[in-house]
Design a protein around this nucleic acid. Sequence first.
RNA 1: GGGCGUUUAGCUCAGUUGGUAGAGCGCCUCCCUUACAAGGAGGAUGUCGGGAGUUCGAGCCUCUCAACGCCCACCA
Length: 875
Amino acid sequence: MTADIENELNTTYEARKIESETYKFWEDNNCFKADSNSDKEPYSIVIPPPNVTGVLHMGHALDETLQDILVRYNRMLQKETLWMPGCDHAGIATQNVVEKNLAKEGISRHDLGREKFLEKTWDWANQHKDRILEQCKLLGASFDMSRKRFTLDEGCSAAVKKVFVDLYNKGLIYKGSYIVNWCPRCQSAISDIETNYETEDGNLWEISYALKDDMGAIVIATTRPETMFGDVAIAVNPTDYKYKDLIGKMCVMPLTGRAIPIIADDYVDKSFGTGALKITPAHDPNDFEVGLRHNLPQIKVINECGCMMKNEYVPKELQGLTREEARKKTVELLELNQVLVKITPHVHNVGKCQRCNTTIEPLLSTQWFVKMEPLAKPAIEAVKNGTIKFIPERWEKNYLMWMENIRDWCISRQLWWGHQIPAYYHNETGEMIVALENPDPDNYTQDTDVLDTWFSSGLWPFETMGWPDTNHPDFKKFYPTSTLVTGFDIIFFWVARMITMGLEFTKKAPFSTVYIHGLIRDEHGQKMSKSKGNTIDPVDLIEKYGCDALRFTLTYLCTYGGQDIKISDEKFEFGRNFANKIWNASRFVLMNVENENSFDFDSIKSPSDLGDLTIADKWILNEFNETAKLINENLENYRIGEVAAILYDFFRSKYCDWYVELSKIEKNEKVLVYVLEGFLRLLHPIMPHITEAIWQKMPIKRNSVGILKAVYPKYQGSFEFKTDAKKMETVFETIKALRNVRAEFNIPLSSKIDIVIDKNEDLYSQIIPYLNRLAKVNDVKFEANSNIAQSAYCNVADTKITIPLKGLIDIELEIKRQNKKIEKLNNELKPLEARLNNEKFVNSAPKEVVEKAIAQKQELAAQIELINQTIKKLS
RNA sequence: GGGCGUUUAGCUCAGUUGGUAGAGCGCCUCCCUUACAAGGAGGAUGUCGGGAGUUCGAGCCUCUCAACGCCCACCA
């Protein structure tokens, strides 16, 4: 049977082969399917739906891995677990892609018309919809593909319509003409948070406006002279003495000669520019507000394409020019007319479209809005009272600040791809009806706008569970969901909206915990982007290192604070090496235990079920038990990076380096197998494939179809062996000390050494075989006051070990070595003594801290004393 | 302008109620010891960004300064 395992299991872990086999095994056995009729406790997560345009990137890899870890952990806690997969229709992004493809054929969407265009877009979406979720399978994602959803599918569309109509009927959705962020390229309004600001070098132009019925002029400052044709007033600060007498007077606009009033408004900053400001309500959000306050007209001079309008306000020679051309030309004309007083270079922020980076035009436009303030109130409360918890906590502040200052949300988009707004207009009268269905398709026409993509994703946790049917088994069983996992970049776009919508429509928070992780960056800390060419493709990493290696490395790099994660290709060698180590240690175990499928992990309730235990057995059982405890605690608290680190340390430094080595001397097969299986179970959520593959090959009784459904190990009181564990640590110290002597004196492993031990015979006599093998010790003698010339010495706790090294030892070197040790010990001792001599410390520090310090001091002092004696003998 | 984060070994970063600093990689020495060289054994390396304070005791708490980064706001 040993030969079988050797043949069957390669010495190197072949990740890709095993991973694809394992994933297929889970799929074939329907392992990820959630049962809404189960009476087990539910645990559910909805995936942040990736864009249908998307290709798997490292951000997904991290996000999906973390979700899968939580899902798999809870599955092993024997909960009924649902991970809901799906995609987002990604309004603008998808439409852009399809339009680009059309452009290659030389046609625009308008050539096709709405219906044909949508057909094409659906074709494209259907072709690409499954791509990214299929890629997620390479990550080992254990989501329930039978429930896969799309934000534009029938169910989601029904939910969207209902939400829209309800909000409208509650007065929380309104339509109106306001200044919005308009993208001239996308030809659509976008919301405030879809607008990013970039600093740009510009100018501050000072322009002189002559007074109408008086001598003199007023000079205003502007960064956008081309908008001046839409001016309706000049504003100054009411307390500005410079302009006190001008308030209420009229002035004449240069170039067009139109007369506008000079008004006073607090908004104007006296110290900026000239202290006088032109007011253009149709093209600047602040001016828009000023205009409303003063009941001023709104004059539109730039159109939806970003070009100067052809109307009475725009001079002939400027009509039809682009914004950029118009600016140049306007400046020229102003100069020509000698009204351009000054040009100062000025750095300012310019709004850009998040999707296409085109400069945003603030534009007066009729759009649909959601009144956010009333919706935000319960969403603020839910976080403040702890119904929803953010991890790390600091994001709560961020969320609250945004929510408390929330502004209305512009939800209409002048696109075709998306949920068309359920408002219908009478063909003759124009009367508007907002309803789930068109009341009379012959006489009413539906609003042509569609909704912001984030409107439907805001409903994701409940629209995917059958809502608005609140009796749907999924809704009843799995809503609200448990944890939401995502990056901080979409807290406002997505998380905030899910919370508001969830509370408004289901009266329940859509999840109880929001787990926010950092962003993946390249090795220099730069954001990864295709344009920078610094992306790392997770699929490549999986091919090269394996999925589990990728998952483990990413997990290991997660910090509790949710810092961004810098990665480079080579970093994943870490995970690959660990996987290989697990593979080989398991090979060893499988080759060295009886191949009967009789060992039943789940039936082991006490250490006695594992037979006679040596001190080493007790030590590893104690360590494993301790590890299980820590792992559960850390998983519960989302300290997932810590989980990876603890498992790594346990397996390598404890199980492999010591216990497996010890088992080569004297083995307890049951313990060897018990701890390996327990470890595999603990690790499974992070490295699902390798743990499953090994588990399936182990000579054990399997009580579930796969390790993925096995019971997760927990701390068990009866497995605590504190005293034995401590003793074993002493043994390890001894072996290390002896190895150290070997290294320092260059004694090869082929030369065996003898040792003389001065005390602790009880313990040491038990572990002579360990010393034989692991420190290559030949003879062990016990003698209280040995005095052997030409010896090396080491001290472990209160025990002195003499290593006679006749002929091998350089006395000078040994004295040097011992002195170095004393120096080191003294450096530790000094601060300790200082503390203990400090009365205040002794009096006010907790008893156990003082006791610990005393014990440490005594131990150090004893060691120093021993070494001093040693040196005396040597010299 | 407001808020947040980061600063710890050569590099990348951990460090959970304050008890006296750790890991991985890299580096140096030795070893193919029959699971694993994607491995094993041993070793070197830190005034924990600067300053002040609270405390018996500070990487951790308070204040302050500095550098870098992010988010929000959008003064024309």
